[in-house]
Nucleic acid binder design. Structure first.
Lengths: 358, 358
DNA sequence: CTGAAAGCGCTAACAG
DNA sequence: CTGTTAGCGCTTTCAG
């Protein structure tokens, strides 16, 4: 019971193993009668073929994998769905795998390519800190999706990976989009704008978004004040949390009584900030405006609804999977694709011109 | 490059394959010198052993799997973390796999047991609709965690699976806990209490929680009114969404102007309901109280903070994984374990006694 | 300490 | 249409 193999089934049915194999794999060259009989026995004995053996033997397998870094980001899940559908239409199998924070996704990819004879890989999430060497070891087309832009490397003064490896990448231009958010705030009259960010010490989207903030201020001739920058520095575990947003906003407000707006580098963080502002007895947006980044569902329902930089999930997903298949088909070379995001103004932002204050 | 095998490495190093194998697997019987040399070559060639082949050959593997049903539930992710840690302490490997909504998790489990020589399995989420036959086919200890209680079957008039298969199960008593929520509301003076639920036609936690609602009303002598029941009936896709909560609350309020409280069978649904109530120009909890179920992080930060039935994530996780290992060690038999949940009163509920109304 | 050889369970020629 | 057979890449005896 525990370990029925194809041999057992063959013996029981009085046929050869290859016939059983044919039955399992819907091979055309098999008598429907025989097949039916075999399937009945398989069912009775609860036989499940050993995938390891299967894939070991198979030389090809029309399948691609989605490697999601970080266990929880709900943002990626909708994207995976879109891509899975597309994959199905192409008659490819989709393998979804989570990669732990402390695991190397490129390693996992390599193992999977060998193990499952993948045709392609989509990397979702994580930061762009890959070793060119191991990247080059991947023998099938792959694409990074919503992984922090590699410009980070440049900012960090490191040699760019893309100089040695030509990889495909689909992402939003974090710096530009974050500038968009700040510019909007400035246009609304805000001058003292705080930011809750993360990862300033390393290549990360947090750093990029922070740089966008800085740049926007600069362009608008508004002095940059380090006191207005709160950096999340929790040691381990998720940093994009409501709690961190809460703590950040609290500190920012305490240190800057004249602050009128807070930009958070993610919606989840912004939700925490909103709570902190309200708990301080202030009104949103009358006293303090809040802008997030991502465009998650939660932001459409929270009170007040969140103004944010919305990343076009569906478009990004479609562009990514299309790109991957184009590479698999040999119709396209790896390239960097920048997708436009959109500032969605909802209820958490308002005018920065104060009437009766200070 | 693309397909280095252990043979290649052996040839390059001028040793036998078994020696390379020993190096890879930290086998004690190997000359440190030889090992170092081999590891260097492996590194240089970027060799990654083929797991399929590995597991095919291995007869044992001290590993357990977590099968999470439904792709996105953030509730399970924290639980998996806790269990993974525990697993690590026991020097077992943890395999995390998502099971698609349309996939049969028992099937996946069986395949994985064969493929990876699992020692045990934890099933997270999904509904309890398993075939006793296939359940019995699983040859290693397994446990269901936060999977809808099987009492559902009884309610649905079906023979209980537990009568034919003795399986382990850790869960909250959905019926009792939901009664707790309603009782609290009644004690606050509420009489016209709406419910946003799901899955009334099939065994599901939604049904159980609905039955708790009904029962609590009955015990308190409050008439049950079907008009106060909103059932989510979306065809495909996730049903536990903010949008469904929004729609449900809207309809409930429209059809019942005298309603003073809404019980939602999940926090996510409750968040949507809150938004709907506010959009209708009503105040929470002055006009309408809201109670959720789960105890997710979002409920602690939303405005107003959500009163809810909090499921003790950590305790459930620990009890589950401990139970599984006890079974693996042969120290415990499969059993049904009920964990207590807790009503956490926050800001979304208040008195149901109206002063100047109707 | 090391190498040769026997499979793990399956698929894919190949020959009936 | 069906059975026989040769491996897929690795681990693991079993001799050296």
């Amino acid at each position: 019971m525990a370990n029925t193999t194809i041999k057992d089934i063959a013996r029981i049915c009085g046929v050869g193993v290859s016939t059983v194999s044919r039955a399992i794999n819907n091979h055309p060259d098999i008598n429907p009668e025989t097949k039916k009989k075999i399937m009945a026995v398989i069912d009775e004995y609860g036989f499940v073929p050993n995938d390891s053996a299967r894939y070991l033997k198979r030389s090809e397998s029309d399948s691609i994998a989605f490697l999601v870094k970080g266990i929880s980001n709900p943002f990626f899940l909708g994207m995976v769905r879109v891509m899975e559908q597309f994959t199905q239409k192409r008659n490819y199998a989709a393998i979804l795998r989570h990669v732990d924070d402390d695991q190397d996704e490129v390693m996992v990819a390599q193992a999977l390519v060998k193990e499952r004879k993948l045709k392609g890989i989509v990397f979702l999430g994580g930061n762009f800190t890959h070793d060119p060497e191991s990247l080059q070891q991947i023998s099938v087309p792959y694409i990074f999706c919503t992984v922090g832009n590699e410009d980070e490397f440049e900012l960090a003064g490191r040699p760019l990976v893309r100089d040695s490896v030509r990889y495909a990448n689909v992402a939003v231009d974090d710096l530009v989009e974050s500038k968009k958010a700040i510019s909007y705030l400035v246009e609304q009259g805000h001058r003292r704008i705080g930011i809750v960010t993360e990862g300033l010490d390393k290549p990360s989207v947090g750093q990029l978004r922070y740089l966008g903030y800085k740049k926007a201020l600069e362009e608008r001739g508004i002095p940059y004040d380090p006191k207005l920058v709160y950096e999340i520095r929790t040691k381990d575990g998720e940093r994009y949390t409501r709690q961190n947003g809460y703590l950040g906003a609290k500190e920012l407000m305490r240190d800057n009584p004249d602050l009128t707006a807070i930009f958070c580098i993610s919606d989840v963080i912004a939700i925490g900030a909103i709570r902190a502002i309200i708990d301080s007895g202030k009104k949103i947006p009358e006293d303090v405006s809040v802008v997030g980044y991502d465009g998650i569902d939660e932001g459409k329902y929270c009170v007040p609804r969140l103004t944010t930089i919305e990343q076009p999930q569906v478009e990004i997903s479609e562009a990514t999977i299309q790109f991957l298949f184009d590479m698999i088909d040999g119709k396209r070379e790896p390239d960097n694709l920048l997708m436009p995001a959109k500032l969605v103004v909802r209820e958490s932002t308002g005018s920065g011109y104060r009437s009766g204050r200070e």
